[in-house]
Simulated assay, not measured.
Amino acid sequence: MSNPVIVYSTADCVECDMVKKMLTEEGIPFEVRDVLKNEEYQEEVEKFGFLGVPVTVVGERAVKGFNPEVIEFIQSLKK
């Protein structure tokens, strides 16, 4: 995979944990960026047009939350 996967997250975020668990189960490496520990990460999330987490990013594509779109997005990374 040419673009790294980034999951913008916070501690104790159930949806964030679900995204990270699914990526792990699919064998897709990812970087976690905690928006509460680094203000720059929150600014990055906002540039994608989101205020909350989780936000999963690959290249220029960002998907918010844990929903069917995120699941399809994650599974498409393996193709």
Rank of each mutant, 00 (worst) to 15 (best):
V63L: 06
E31H: 10
T10E: 07
D34W: 06
F73K: 04
V14S: 10
M22S: 08
F73P: 01
G49H: 07
P29C: 02
P68C: 07
G49L: 07
Y8T: 03
C13N: 07
L23C: 01
Y8Q: 02
I71C: 08
Y41G: 04
F48L: 06
V63M: 05
I74K: 00
V32P: 00
V35G: 04
G59P: 06
P68N: 05
F50M: 04
E15D: 15
V19A: 05
G65D: 10
K64A: 12
F48W: 11
Y8G: 01
T10P: 03
N38R: 01
T10I: 11
V57Q: 04
P54W: 08
K79P: 11
K37F: 13
A62E: 05
V63W: 09
K47C: 12
V53D: 03
V32D: 04
M1K: 15
E26W: 00
V55P: 00
G65I: 06
E31Y: 09
V58H: 01
V32F: 06
N3S: 12
V14K: 02
E25V: 02
S9G: 08
V7D: 00
M22V: 13
R61Q: 15
K79A: 14
R33P: 00
M18F: 11
Q42M: 05
I6G: 00
E39I: 09
K37P: 03
L23R: 00
E46K: 02
A11G: 14
I6W: 01
E26N: 01
G49S: 06
E40A: 11
L36Y: 15
R61P: 11
E60M: 14
V70H: 02
P68A: 08
C16K: 03
P68K: 06
Q75V: 15
E39T: 10
D34C: 03
E31P: 12
C13I: 14
E60D: 12
E44D: 08
L23G: 00
V14I: 14
S76M: 11
V70N: 02
E31L: 06
F48M: 04
N67T: 07
E60P: 14
E44K: 09
D12N: 14
V14H: 08
E31C: 07
Q75I: 14
C16G: 07
R61K: 13
K20A: 10
I71L: 06
E69Y: 13
A11M: 15
K37N: 13
P29I: 11
F30H: 02
E60Y: 14
E25I: 01
K79M: 13
F30Y: 02
L23D: 00
A62I: 07
E31V: 01
D12W: 14
R61T: 15
M1S: 12
S2K: 05
P68Y: 09
F50Y: 07
M1W: 12
K21A: 08
I28Y: 02
G59W: 09
G27T: 13
D12V: 11
V32Q: 04
V55T: 04
V19G: 01
P54Y: 08
E25M: 04
V53M: 01
E15C: 09
Q75N: 08
K37H: 13
E46L: 06
S9D: 10
A62M: 04
Y8L: 03
V70M: 03
I6N: 00
R61M: 15
G27V: 12
